Amino acid sequence: MTEFKIMSETFYEQPTLDLAKALLGCLLVKETPEGMAAGYIVETEAYKGPGDKAAHSYNNRRTSRTEIMFHRSGLAYTYKMHTHCLFNIVCGDEDHPEAVLIRALEPVYGIELMQKRRGMENLTNLTNGPGKLTKALRITMEDYGHSLIIPPLYVAEGFYPESISAGKRIGIDNSGEAKDYPWRFWVTNNKYVSRHQTALYVVR
């Protein structure tokens, strides 16, 4: 199996908005008995916990679903939305529940396996959405709470994006002023981004 340099535990201890940007270009890897599948992270959204009306943990809401968000950084927070499983990375200090949603990947390894799982051949649409990428990599609710510094689910070094764009998060229209926060980040002009919009600003 291909060897990757897995990101260290300290990588996840940076501020949430910084982590959401730092994850861009990193490789998200899932190993299963069927084989390994992986893709470069090209789009993220930051959710800043208790003060963010769009976050599941707004007002320190602690439930069986959000419990893992109150733990240390670098753990997997998976949850169901409709029929999809969505994948987030826990960050923020312990008992200060924040997270980064992984919204899109550029498929790199195990592409045929991902195509089989998704029942499609189109590479552009294979992992360009939070529900699409989890199905392609077979990230499930069983990964809830998994430490991302060890297999079978982990983040590894990838590439350094030349340019990062920022804009409003998607699908949170009922979250008051939080819907306008520019906390969605993506690799500029990457064709695997889930939804293309005009950037509010360019990070670099």
Results as ranks from 00 to 15, higher is better:
E94Y: 00
S163Q: 12
D143P: 13
H84P: 00
L126Y: 01
P152E: 04
Y109G: 01
Q115M: 08
L153V: 11
I139H: 04
G129I: 04
A99I: 07
K80I: 14
K48W: 15
M81A: 10
A104Q: 01
Y77C: 09
E157F: 00
A99P: 10
M81W: 04
F70W: 08
S57L: 06
G92C: 07
K116M: 02
C91V: 04
S64V: 15
G145I: 08
N122P: 03
N88D: 11
L105E: 00
E121M: 01
L133G: 08
R72H: 12
T78E: 02
E34D: 07
K48H: 15
G49C: 12
A37W: 06
H71T: 14
E162R: 10
D52R: 15
M69V: 03
R138L: 14
D93A: 03
K132L: 07
T32R: 03
Y79H: 13
A76K: 12
E112K: 14
M36Q: 11
K80A: 11
S147P: 06
H82Y: 15
V90T: 11
T32H: 05
L75R: 08
K168T: 14
T134D: 10
T134I: 12
M69R: 02
H82R: 12
T44R: 06
G145V: 10
I41N: 07
T66P: 11
D95C: 00
R65I: 13
H84G: 05
